[in-house]
Design a protein around this nucleic acid. Structure first.
Lengths: 140, 140
DNA sequence: GTATATGCAAAGGTTTTGCACAGCC
DNA sequence: GGCTGTGCAAAACCTTTGCATATAC
């Protein structure tokens, strides 16, 4: 991944190393402010603007992607680990859908519309099993 | 709808009337700052904080819902008109999916997971037909 | 040595909050 | 008249930007 940067005439600075390390070590997604906080713990003085610029840069190169979850944009390693986020609007529980599973959704939409969906970009909101039962009791 | 408020011991003020009117007249979704701007055109002096408080209130009562689109949260009348937003990540084109169409997606997810998705809450990102062809030419 | 990256500071935008006053019921 | 709602002002966030300095290559 360092190579991706070098090939573009970009530099591998200590700050970038730290930011990359933090995102790679974070399982799943992480928000820019969270990245900033964590990086600053290990490397005080790193500025938030550097974090934002680096995240945008790494996304531009294709190393990272961002997705929109309930709390806002979150970054994650691009590629292999991609998956669809499902979050319960009632209790906040999170679950994932593999790309294989999402593929069935994709085909369904393509059958109706001339549109190629990317379900990894926005989360899918809804009710988890437990909350569904609970809500049913209250509402009905 | 005024009744929904009265029944809760809530008051129908001119500001609320204006805010409700603005959202109901807006086809589709509208962001809080946009609501504020429009309301202030007709009723100068209405404060943004009033708009935010009112939107939250109306959502709590069930009159409004908000959805997350590419540009952030947007409010819309709850109920009937609900639909799924699909937006092209390349050109920004928007298209909708009816709830009937979305129902097929729902069933698919329910078949795999114990999760009841609400596709109206987050948009679905992807490539529209035109951009898909265009992107295909470039990438492939 | 030079172009890139960073820190700093400031600004922009959205959203929230505390408080005193106004106004709906 | 009492309690809710509003305006105002301030603050809390998040994010972006301009510029001088530092530094990777």
């Amino acid at each position: 991944m360092l190579r991706s940067l070098r090939d573009r005439g970009l530099r591998m600075t200590p700050q970038r190393r730290a930011i990359v390390a933090e995102i790679m070590s974070a399982e799943g997604h992480i928000s820019p402010p969270a990245v900033a906080r964590r990086v600053q713990e290990r490397m005080p003085g790193v500025n938030a603007s550097t974090v934002y610029r680096t995240l945008a840069l790494l996304e531009g190169v294709g190393l990272l992607s961002h997705a929109h979850l309930e709390r806002g944009a979150e970054y994650h390693r691009a590629g292999e680990g991609d998956h669809v986020h499902m979050s319960c609007s009632r209790c906040g529980a999170e679950d994932d859908l593999s790309l294989e599973e999402a593929d069935a959704l994709r085909r369904l939409i393509e059958a109706h519309r001339d549109f190629l969906p990317d379900f990894t970009h926005f989360a899918i909101s809804g009710l988890c099993g437990d909350c569904r039962k609970a809500a049913g009791r209250v509402t009905a």
